[in-house]
Design a protein around this nucleic acid. Structure first.
Lengths: 220, 220
DNA sequence: TCAAGATATGAAGGAACATTGAGCTTTTGG
DNA sequence: CCAAAAGCTCAATGTTCCTTCATATCTTGA
């Protein structure tokens, strides 16, 4: 399913000495900093190199062009994020749906929030056309994990796993992003997060009633 | 509350003859087309002018610079969107919460979907740093309208209007955007939309029980 | 210790763009 | 019908930025 990067976006060379590994990390970090402080429009190769404390040429030893740098940055992040989602899904296999939803919210929210500046910086970099494929791949991978998780729930009744996944995934990911973009106060953020969880619970409970005839949410 | 555009982003001249009104429209339309087909990176003044069938200079008679063009485009769109939300809120004043939520979903979803390409094009243009202010203004305006609407509901009980608004707004706007970005089939889109509505209903019903002791959702 | 490979430098080339302004055409109002 | 205002054109300007490459320095393994 993974499309793999277009040739023009592949890394040019892989660091082998530890010195260069440090360099590449510095370049990534510098990219985030510039993105954060100056925005996508000011993300120039020179500025990144400068902030990373290396020369422009060095950058071009590891990335064939500027786009590839942004691509790699997003790839790194999305890969880690997908990994965390998969871990959560593995851990929650067989749990009740409500707990799964709660755990998913927790994982996603934490991932976006713990280094909020990074998240913000990356949101600014996703305009690049070719990153679309990257996002699609991430979505596919995450959906596979969550759908499988949901399918393993004891209280799935006769629900359709892909549909349930579509709903919960869209609501959770969408809401978290929206919350993020609003720049909420800590208090509001906590409140919203709780309410989002409550909302998923309520939805699952009503569906349960529908499907089993039992009132499930009162067992909290 | 409206910050108003920075001086560098204000329109240079307002069309007075009908000929120029056509021109400005063509420029806006061309901007959308270019954004759609080639992405933000290829949005150059020459390309826009070319597609609009005018010369570059003409563009500069109405917009002091490229950024201002993008700014104006977003402004136009967000203003219309806010207007529609306000209209819905006015119309639903005094209705039950569940109907309000349903109506809000309907308005927002329709607005985003009816000219999906435009929405998609604009999402691609929001990287510009100064558009942040525009989005904030939109959020403020929309939140004012929806909060007032919610406050007028007969079944508000002892809920806190701003908090309820925060929750529903974030969930609805966030989910619609996420749905949009997934490029769903018509069938899946309809399904998700229905489930989102159900979810809001379920949430409101449980809260109602909490607040009034009555089971409200079974009256569907 | 030393040669081969890895890594780093930064000035220079060259393409792509945003923006201007002097001059031309069309519309308007009287 | 005509002068003033509005609208339009496009070649030229100057800047910004990506990318390369010849050269220099550092690291590794034998």
């Amino acid at each position: 399913m993974t499309r793999g990067p277009k040739p023009a976006l592949k890394a040019r060379k892989t660091p082998v000495q530890s010195r260069s590994r440090v360099t590449v990390d510095a370049i990534f970090e510098a990219t985030i900093q510039v993105l954060l402080r100056e925005g996508m429009r000011a993300l120039t190769t020179t500025r990144v190199a400068e902030r990373a404390g290396v020369s422009v040429g060095t950058m071009y030893q590891y990335f064939p062009n500027k786009q590839a740098l942004v691509y790699a940055l997003n790839e790194r992040y999305l890969d880690a994020l997908a990994g965390r989602i998969e871990a959560t899904c593995a851990e929650m296999r067989g749990a009740p749906l409500a707990e799964m939803a709660e755990a998913l919210i927790d994982t996603y929210w934490t991932a976006k929030t713990e280094r909020a500046e990074v998240t913000r910086a990356l949101y600014r970099s996703v305009v690049e056309l070719d990153n679309d494929a990257l996002l699609q791949d991430f979505a596919t991978r995450a959906d596979a994990a969550t759908t499988a998780m949901f399918a393993s729930a004891p209280d799935m009744a006769d629900r359709d796993a892909p549909t349930l996944n579509l709903t919960l995934a869209a609501v959770i990911y969408g809401t978290v992003r929206n919350a993020f973009e609003r720049g909420l106060s800590d208090k509001d953020a906590r409140r919203l997060r709780r309410n989002l969880a409550d909302m998923c619970q309520a939805y699952l409970a009503v569906k349960a009633e529908h499907h089993t005839g039992a009132i499930a949410w009162s067992t909290s």
